[in-house]
């Protein structure tokens, strides 16, 4: 059985077909990267999975359980935890309190279980930094804090929305290592939306290409980049 199964998902905004009959499945422990041009419906897909938006048709099932009509916090309680595109940490609270709030999340069943030291080590926070307000962190480190928070909650499915947005090359490289490390060590199922092609290549995972609200092709990075439609629509002349 598929871990996550999305079938015939539809969400239109007026005349815009953001998600238009989309099918997607994920096996347990799989790492999948979704790429696609701006406005192809990637973030809408995440909003639908997390219940922030209601689909007009289609179903989303996690381990056979229908999530489609659940409220956002109930979907999170089922183990689907998301990282937002804009770093969304609690600026006024210390880094440690941020992590403690996340590890206190009322999930029905914990996918992974990490203690405070592991989380701090993973995101590279010193003891002194743990006591500082999260608002004082630089942009890239806020992103890592939020990734650590997502893991602290004990998810069984992690959704990362452009985790390297606004990062320097060096920070991006570190983020690739961080995500590969998390996936290798804890075997969590993860879906990631990405824009940065270099990032996608170095992740060495399955890639799904989304266009006009659907997945048009799926495979390894090498397979996908060879597809004509992808070259034209997304990679452009430079690819």
């Amino acid at each position: 059985m598929d871990f996550l199964k999305i079938e015939g998902l539809v969400r239109h905004f007026g005349g815009t077909r953001a998600v238009d009959g989309m099918d997607l499945s994920l096996t347990e422990g799989e790492l999948l990267c979704i790429i696609g041009p701006n406005g192809c419906g990637k973030t809408t897909l995440f909003n639908l999975i997390c219940g922030e938006l209601r689909p007009q048709a289609g179903t989303i099932r996690l381990q056979g359980r229908d999530l489609t009509r659940l409220k956002p916090h109930d979907i999170a309680r089922c183990g689907v935890i998301r990282k937002f595109q804009v770093p969304s940490v609690y600026d006024g609270l210390s880094v440690e309190r941020n992590l403690r709030l996340a590890s206190g999340a009322p999930l029905l069943r914990r996918g992974v279980r990490l203690d405070m030291d592991e989380l701090a080590a993973m995101a590279g926070f010193t003891r002194v930094e743990m006591a500082r307000p999260a608002g004082e962190l630089a942009h890239g480190r806020k992103q890592w804090l939020e990734i650590a928070m997502v893991l602290a909650a004990g998810p069984s499915l992690v959704l990362l929305d452009e985790p390297t947005a606004g990062m320097t090359r060096e920070e991006t490289a570190r983020t690739v290592r961080l995500i590969r490390d998390i996936h290798a060590r804890y075997g969590i199922s993860m879906i990631m939306i990405e824009h940065d092609m270099g990032f996608v290549e170095r992740l060495e995972c399955d890639v799904a290409v989304m266009m006009r609200g659907r997945v048009i092709t799926r495979g390894s990075f090498a397979d996908v980049r060879g597809v004509d439609a992808v070259r034209e629509a997304y990679l452009g002349a430079s690819a």
Partner: peptide
């Protein structure tokens, strides 16, 4: 406090 700071983040943690 977390809800005051970022309600959507808190909801997305299952609260």
């Amino acid at each position: 406090l977390a809800i005051r700071e970022r309600d959507y983040r808190t909801r997305a943690l299952g609260y």
